[in-house]
Design a protein around this nucleic acid. Structure first.
Lengths: 149, 149
DNA sequence: TACAATTCAATCGCGCGCAATCTATATGCA
DNA sequence: TGCATATAGATTGCGCGCGATTGAATTGTA
């Protein structure tokens, strides 16, 4: 794979790099998330809610590029764990609004150490991390555009 | 998420960027893989086999950072589709050796157009793609090292 | 040669990701 | 107002990823 010399396979290389690094990241986070009883996708949903509470399922999905097929069962698990509440919006009964419980809000402090610890193993200067993040987000944007023209 | 100003959240940003871009890539590949009846992970396994046939499950797993729990059922599906054969190694009965069928080898030609088509939407110069791929692979290496010291 | 330790693949269980479909609610328009 | 259309979320089905365990084959070693 990584030894393929063909320049035509370049997007294959890049795609696989992202595919494998995202799993590697997920594994790296797991050692810190396991003690909290969270998976990485659940953690990301909580990150969103810690930043802005009372979002609807759709709003969470827009931020994370996930649909209700993924989010509904995930949110139910977070609800069963006692971290969030799910309630139909009174003004628009189609929507389900997600709110943090006290437990869910409290989890934030413990979770705040995680990115620091993971960041250590990356061994890259902050500005490089920032540049890389931007570059990757830009690629994601292009892929999304081309998917829904 | 992307609006979080805290520098502490930088590895969160980067991890999420990889997480979301890898799904976006997988969706981009899907439109080309669907007609071939392949998923992205199946395609990646075939890429490996097209480069070197007669690998064992472990050897495939080493190249793709996947274990038998993922590969065994995936390979069975590729076998059912007629693309590969699975057979115990005569010299070491613990190993299962994977070989391409004629159908599986023939699939390569159709698949060869895919990275080109995906590459078009990325809109990045070749050397930038190459640099990005290397940088991401390096990060993956660091994450793997720190996982198994 | 016995027998413990290691290696390889298979199996099981669970949580995503996502396409497709369904239901309920809201909106737009004649 | 009445009905078509659109939207939000839930549900179903399938294919991963992966931790944990199992069973069989091999290797290392006393």
């Amino acid at each position: 794979m990584t030894a393929n010399p063909s320049p035509l396979a370049l997007s294959n290389q890049l795609c696989f790099a992202f595919y494998s690094v995202s799993h590697a990241f997920s594994r790296a986070y797991r050692q810190f998330l396991d003690p909290l009883g969270l998976t990485y996708p659940q953690y990301v949903v909580l990150l969103v809610l810690w930043e802005q509470d009372e979002l609807t399922v759709k709003e969470i999905g827009d931020r994370l590029f996930l649909d209700s097929g993924t989010l509904t069962p995930l949110l139910k698990r977070l609800e069963n764990a006692g971290h969030i509440r799910r309630a139909r919006d009174k003004k628009d009964e189609r929507q389900v609004r997600i709110s943090l419980t006290e437990t869910g809000r409290a989890l934030r402090e413990k979770a705040e150490e995680i990115p620091k610890q993971v960041g250590c193993v990356l061994g890259l200067p902050v500005d490089e991390l920032r540049a890389l993040t931007e570059q990757v987000a830009k690629l994601r944007g292009r892929l999304h555009e081309s998917a829904s023209p």
